[in-house]
Design a protein around this nucleic acid. Structure first.
Lengths: 259, 259
DNA sequence: TGATCGCATATTGTGCACAATATGCCCTGA
DNA sequence: TCAGGGCATATTGTGCACAATATGCGATCA
């Protein structure tokens, strides 16, 4: 998810089962479906995913490196407990990076790009007017990704996507579950400044926009989601991931070919 | 080096030998002392560093994740061969990120911070006037790090340091070995705009500054450094690292004042 | 002579068994 | 009843042996 495609070179045909496990776990974590603090035991995950412990181990350490898990040397891997301080850090980083993006984009966007962004913004407004909250939230997030893509910098895009991922994990815990979408007027303000090439105003708009989102986070500590047994949650996610995977010739031939 | 301190939680006393190996390899790679394309064989490194192959293996994969090595699944780890395209990507990313930093900093710097930056700039100018090239290069790079630290965002700081690291690897290969330091007038221009709170001008200064550095890279492919036997080079680096480790009782003196 | 196939070898990948470590429980003593 | 220490156990860390894979070289044939 974070760097599945941009990271290692698994471009050619490979048993991507390890990659699939990583995606599954990352997606589950990012959706906030696991209670913070719960330990992910290697052997347990190994039998859930039907692989050896070493495989799980590598994935766990990688997720720790990506800050989605807290991995403590001789203790294990735990679901990260996001704090409001961390949230502030993430939003500050987004202000800087996304401010840099619009600062680079101001006055350099092609007419086609501006049109595409305007069209996206219009879709946002329509979804909002129709009260379609799920679509509205998705489109609001995509606006920022779209902006990052316009910058055409793979390195910055990767970094921003990691920040956005962690943002989504945050809102899963702190958001009051009401009005979590961006106000699309703010997006339009950014767009207007960009089209005019007004660098200063574009950046200021982006800064205040992100700050407004940040203030919506509430410091409640209790986890708002059901959070049943982590085992069941992971089993379900794994089954879905495998189902979504196209038939790659072999479904689950984990220990078939042996001596 | 890239995320040695900010990454895993090895805060308490640990046999940091694995971490030390990572630092040693990273530093050697970053300095460009290894010819691009040379393979780093696990068993060979294992006996050089006096550890088991698995240790080396982990470090190698980590360096691959950090893009300092090209690690190909069933082939091995190779010293990355930087291309001019990659160089362009890195400098574009730095324009965006560092543009974001100055955009965030403009008009928000304290008098003390401005004074510190001005003092640093003065040191740069003095070193340049005295013809002290080594010091001059180091100070020029530190100016950018200093700016990033003023932004007080650990996430952005980490990202930028990775970019700066890769930049230093690039110049080791492409730089014509003459006048590789930043022109300190450009730094002063950025500083002036920052002090005045002129966001647009600060960003523009930063953009042109980085672009100017980028144009100094020459597309020669031959490696300019001696590049003796990689074995000897690594043995030397390892011995130096172990020697330096002896006296380092606590933390490295690289960290400055935090918040 | 040149191209191709097959084998030998060097290198990476992985499962397994065991070691190291932390945690929680129970037992003891006042 | 509670504090403290030691043992049992659950979990992670690591070395090793073997399997899988790619590469290079040489033999063979047209």
């Amino acid at each position: 998810m974070t760097d599945a495609s941009a990271g290692m070179r698994y471009s050619h045909a490979m048993p991507a089962t390890e990659e699939l496990i990583h995606q599954t776990l990352a997606k589950t974590l990012l959706a906030g479906r696991l209670a913070p603090g719960t330990q992910l035991v290697e052997t347990r995950l190994a039998e859930i995913f039907g692989v050896t412990r070493e495989r799980v181990r590598k994935v766990l350490h990688r997720l720790g490196h990506e800050r989605l898990l807290d991995v403590v040397p001789n203790r294990g891997a735990f679901v990260a407990s996001p704090t409001l301080d961390q949230a502030r850090e993430i939003y500050e980083a987004r202000r800087i990076v996304e401010g840099g993006i619009v600062g680079r984009l101001a006055g350099r966007l092609s007419a086609a790009q501006i049109a595409a962004l305007r069209a996206h913004s219009a879709r946002e407004k329509q979804a909002l007017r129709q009260g379609d909250r799920a679509v509205s939230i998705r489109l609001s997030g995509e606006f920022h990704s779209l902006l990052a893509e316009c910058a055409a910098s793979p390195l910055v895009l990767r970094q921003l996507q990691e920040l956005v991922s962690r943002t989504s994990m945050l809102v899963a815990f702190f958001e009051p579950a009401a009005s979590s979408e961006c106000a699309c007027e703010e997006h339009e303000a950014i767009l207007g400044a960009l089209a005019q090439g007004d660098t200063g105003r574009a950046i200021k708009s982006m800064h205040t926009h992100l700050s407004l989102i940040e203030t919506r986070l509430t410091p409640r500590a209790a986890t708002p989601l059901p959070l049943a047994a982590p085992e069941e949650e992971l089993k379900r996610a794994w089954a879905a991931a495998q189902r979504g995977q196209r038939s790659a010739g072999k479904a689950t031939p984990r220990k078939a070919a042996k001596r």
